[in-house]
Design a protein around this nucleic acid. Structure first.
Length: 161
DNA sequence: GCCAACGTTGGC
DNA sequence: GCCAACGTTGGC
């Protein structure tokens, strides 16, 4: 039996890399590199081709879910770790013995309206989302199918209002 | 700019 | 293996 598609949320600071930046790429695809946290890395490695990803903008006003993307390449070594010019060097990771991984994600479409952190927090159906739980700072988080659908529903409802 | 939360490092 | 120090995240 084929595994059910999983759902994820990834955070990015729009000043650094926004959902628009992703959509402007010629293939609408980017290497999701620079993850330097073991828990987040382990989640990255669970991502499967075709999984749906909510693209969330953090450290902006207001923080919000901006768009949806899809995993198009499963985890492979993050070469920015040993690139001295990268923003995220880590000498502990080498081509022979990589510590950090990345996936490729492809932008699918912007949400019809952004769904803010405050709106997510105000929705009781989303109370279990990692995003709204205290101290949850992981840049890669699993999301249930129901939560994912609810965020999309909120975006559509908001766009119509 | 502040600071709570919490992951990581390193001395012991 | 403990834990203090330190760094980072990210909302506010």
């Amino acid at each position: 039996m084929k595994d059910a598609m999983k759902h994820w949320l990834v955070k990015s600071e729009p000043d650094v890399y926004s959902f628009d930046d992703l959509m402007k790429d010629s293939k609408r695809t980017t290497k999701w590199h620079g993850v330097r946290n073991f828990q987040a890395r382990n989640l990255l490695r669970e991502m499967k081709k075709g999984d749906a990803v909510l693209f969330y903008h953090s450290s902006c006003e207001p923080p919000h879910a901006a768009g949806i993307a899809r995993v198009v390449r499963e985890a492979y070594p993050d070469d920015s770790a040993w690139d001295p010019k990268s923003d995220y060097p880590d000498a502990a990771s080498t081509p022979e013995n990589p510590r950090w991984y990345m996936v490729d994600v492809q932008g699918e479409k912007a949400l019809p309206a952004p769904v803010t952190l405050a709106e997510i927090r105000d929705n009781p159906k989303l109370a279990a989302m990692k995003l709204v739980q205290k101290g949850q700072r992981l840049s890669v988080q699993p999301v249930t199918a129901a939560e994912y659908a609810e965020v999309l529903r909120m975006a559509e409802k908001k766009a119509k209002s």
